[in-house]
Structure formats: structure tokens, C-alpha cells
């Protein structure tokens, strides 16, 4: 082996993703900025002619680190191809309070959070009122922002392949499932974690009336702990997400590659790491067949 810097020294092959400084973007129709976080794949700075698939991770800093972390690990392990991870959410300095923006960003107009009867009554008793948010729901604008504004903007800065995955959990999962059906083709791969809403169930039925195929690779994950959590039951989190998965499978779309998993002994939060890992493996399965596997 050559000593470092000596004649014939090997160029080190980077194995860690690199994180860019946060940037900010204002979506059309919004009066506040979103924070944009980007993690570049290990070979990015030594392979200038290469472009990379992109995972768009919802909920900004809350899920960006774990998404990029699991992605980094699975890239090193040759479980997935090298990818760029983009996190979009509220500004980090707003702290947990900024998470309130996700209600506006991730729910499109017409979203059905709970449902009439048991669920709705429980939410009202507990003081969760979705009605006040209704006039401010901008999930449709947020989807436009991601696809029409942010994607071309970041595409000028980074070498992004025209291969886009949308990943979201909870409200983010609802948003991802909405995007799948409201704007088919805008993303080709989806990781949907524990969440959809009544609007998406209706959208799925409407989509089926007008289409005989859905070209997408989709992973849906849920946790058994969510069924044992009353507020999540009131939002029909597991039942609606399951219904979406079942209906999509029943359609028999020839170009839809769908896999759904239930995680035992996990809750709404702790299910995220395996959903990310398994989701990435599923949605990129067509790209990893030829990857050399390490002997671990």
C-alpha cells in the first residue's frame, strides 16, 4: 500500500454523504420561507459527470437527519444507490413551534382529518380542532412549489437526475399519498409512512375511474403502536392508510410496484427508521440489482 500523498497514492473513495449549509426559499402564495436541507452522496465531489436520484423528505430538520443517516448507511452497505436527500420544512430556528406550518403545507384543501362520528367527537373532546385550519390549507401550493419551483432551482445547483422520490411520515405520508394521485408522474417513487387522509381515499377512487395504470414504486409502512394510540385512532391513521394500500392493490395497475409493511412493537415515531430503510430499499430495488454487495 502506498503512503498518503506519495507516488501512486490512491485517491480516497469518500463513503460519507456531505451536508450543505441550509438555504431558504419562498413558495408562491406563501408569506413565509421554507428551509431547504441537502445531503449529497459520497461520490458527488469526485464524480463530476454523474447525476443522482433525489429523495424529497418532508418535515424538514425533524426527519432530514435520520433520512440522510439511514440513506448514508445503506449506500455504504450497497443496499441502495447513491442518492441526494433534500429536506423541506420550516426554519429550524422556529423550533417545535414551527411544526405547526406542516398542517398548512402537508394538507391540501378539502382534506379530511378525522371523520364524522366517533373519531371527530373524540378529537373535539380533546380540543383538537381541524376546522380552524381549513381556510389555510395549502398542500396543493406546496406540491406545486416542490415540483415547479424548488426542483428546477435546486437542479441548477446540484446534479439531480430526473428521478424523484417523495417521502413523508404522518401528515407527510398523507401529503405523499396525495401527490401520488393528485399529480401522477411528478414523482416516480413514494415512501408513505403512517398517514393519509379522507381526501386521498376519494382521490384514489376518482383516479381509478379515469386511468387503467399507475406507474410508480410505492412503499407504505405503519406501526402496530399506532392502533393503540387513541388520538391516532381518531384520525383513522392505520385504517385509512391500510384502505389506501388495499385499494391500490385491488386496482391491479400493471406498472404499480407496491409493498406495504406493518411494524410490530413500534409506535408513530419509532417506526420511522425502519420505514425509511425498507422504503428506500423497495423504491430503489430496480436500481440496485447490479450493485456490488459487500460480504457482510
Amino acid at each position: 500500500m502506498s503512503g498518503s500523498g506519495g507516488p501512486g497514492a490512491r485517491t480516497a473513495v469518500p463513503y460519507a454523504m456531505s451536508w450543505e449549509e441550509p438555504s431558504y426559499a419562498r413558495a408562491e402564495g406563501y408569506d413565509y420561507d421554507h428551509e431547504i436541507l441537502v445531503a449529497l452522496p459520497p461520490s458527488y465531489h469526485v464524480a463530476p459527470d454523474r447525476s443522482y436520484p433525489v429523495v424529497w423528505s418532508m418535515d424538514g430538520a425533524m426527519t432530514f437527519a435520520v433520512t440522510a443517516g439511514v440513506a448514508n448507511l445503506y449506500i455504504v452497505g450497497k443496499r441502495i444507490p447513491e442518492i441526494i436527500v433534500v429536506g423541506v420544512g420550516h426554519r429550524s430556528e422556529q423550533g417545535m413551534l414551527g411544526l405547526a406550518n406542516r398542517t398548512f403545507d402537508l394538507f391540501p384543501p378539502g382534506s379530511v382529518w378525522s371523520d364524522p362520528g366517533l373519531g371527530d367527537e373524540y378529537m373535539k373532546r380533546m380540543g383538537f380542532t381541524f376546522e380552524m385550519s381549513r381556510p389555510f390549507l395549502t398542500g396543493d401550493l406546496f406540491l406545486d412549489f416542490l415540483v415547479e419551483q424548488l426542483r428546477p432551482s435546486l437542479g441548477e445547483r446540484y446534479r439531480m437526475a430526473d428521478d424523484h422520490t417523495l417521502w413523508g411520515h404522518s401528515a407527510g405520508g398523507g401529503f405523499a399519498s396525495y401527490a401520488l394521485l393528485a399529480r401522477p408522474g411528478a414523482f416516480g417513487r413514494f415512501i408513505i409512512g403512517s398517514g393519509t387522509n379522507g381526501l386521498t381515499i376519494d382521490l384514489e377512487a376518482e383516479y381509478a375511474k379515469r386511468h387503467d395504470d399507475l406507474d410508480a414504486r410505492v412503499f407504505i409502512g405503519m406501526a402496530d403502536g399506532e392502533i393503540n394510540h387513541t388520538p391516532l385512532c381518531a384520525q383513522r391513521l392505520v385504517s385509512r392508510t391500510t384502505l389506501l394500500a388495499e385499494n391500490l392493490r385491488l386496482r391491479g395497475y400493471p406498472s404499480l410496484d407496491l409493498r406495504t409493511r406493518f411494524y410490530a412493537d413500534r409506535d408513530h415515531f419509532t417506526s420511522m427508521p425502519p420505514i425509511i430503510g425498507d422504503g428506500l430499499q423497495h423504491v430503489y430495488a430496480d436500481l440496485i440489482e447490479d450493485l456490488p454487495k459487500p460480504n457482510w
Partner: peptide, 16 residues
Amino acid sequence: RDHFTVMPLIIANGLQ
């Protein structure tokens, strides 16, 4: 899980 894909779970459950 395999030797690699087990890591996120070990990290998360280990931290807890």
C-alpha cells in the same frame, strides 16, 4: 434484517 439493515433498529432501540 441483515448485518447492515439491522443498524437503524439497534441504534433506535439502543438509545431508548
